Simulated scan of single mutants.
Amino acid sequence: MAMKSLKKQRRIQIIALAVVALTVSTVLIATAMRDGINFFRSPSQVMEEPPSPAEVFRIGGLVEEGTLIRGDGEQIRFSVTDGGATVPVIYTGVLPDLFEENQGMVGTGRYVDGVFEASEILAKHDETYMPKEVVDALKAQGIYQDPDS
Rank of each mutant, 00 (worst) to 15 (best):
A32V: 10
R11V: 04
S52Q: 11
Y91P: 03
P43A: 11
Q145P: 00
V27D: 04
A137W: 00
F99I: 03
Q145D: 06
P88C: 08
T26D: 11
A140E: 03
R41P: 02
I59T: 07
P131H: 00
R70C: 01
I69P: 03
F57Q: 07
R77I: 00
T92G: 09
R11Y: 12
G60V: 05
P131W: 00
K4V: 09
G73D: 00
K7R: 15
L68D: 08
L28G: 09
G114D: 11
E127C: 01
E117S: 05
V135E: 09
G71M: 06
M130P: 03
L6A: 13
S149V: 01
S25D: 04
E65A: 14
G93R: 08
T31P: 01
G104P: 04
I76C: 12
P147E: 07
D113H: 10
V19I: 14
K139L: 13
L138T: 08
V80Q: 09
V19M: 11
G109C: 08
E74N: 12
F78V: 00
A30F: 02
D35Y: 05
F99Y: 10
A85S: 14
G36L: 11
V135C: 05
G142L: 05
E74G: 06
A32F: 09
M130S: 12
E64A: 10
I12M: 12
Y111R: 13
E101T: 06
Q103F: 11
F78E: 05
N102K: 01
A18H: 01
M47S: 12
R10S: 02
D136Y: 12
Y129E: 08
E101D: 07
R10Y: 11
D126R: 09
R10M: 07
S25L: 10
V94M: 14
S52H: 05
L62V: 04
T92E: 15
V134G: 08
M105C: 13
F40H: 10
G114C: 05
S52C: 01
S5D: 10
A30R: 15
I69C: 01
Y111C: 02
Q141T: 07
A16C: 07
K124T: 13
L98V: 10
Q45W: 03
G61P: 06
R34E: 10
Y91T: 02
G93L: 05
S5R: 07
K8D: 04
I69H: 14
E100W: 01
P96S: 05
F116Q: 09
P50C: 06
L95F: 12
L95N: 04
E64K: 13
F116K: 08
G71N: 04
F39I: 08
I14C: 06
D97N: 08
P131F: 00
P88T: 07
I143Q: 12
T67G: 13
T26W: 09
G36H: 14
D126A: 05
D113E: 15
V94G: 04
D97Y: 15
G104E: 03
E65C: 02
R110C: 00
V89Y: 15
G114M: 06
V63D: 11
F116W: 13
E49V: 02
A123F: 01
K7W: 14
R58V: 02
M1Y: 05
G71C: 01
R10G: 01
D72I: 02
L122H: 09
G107K: 07
S52R: 13
K124V: 02
N38Y: 15
V24L: 14
Y144T: 00
E101L: 03
S119N: 10
M33Q: 12
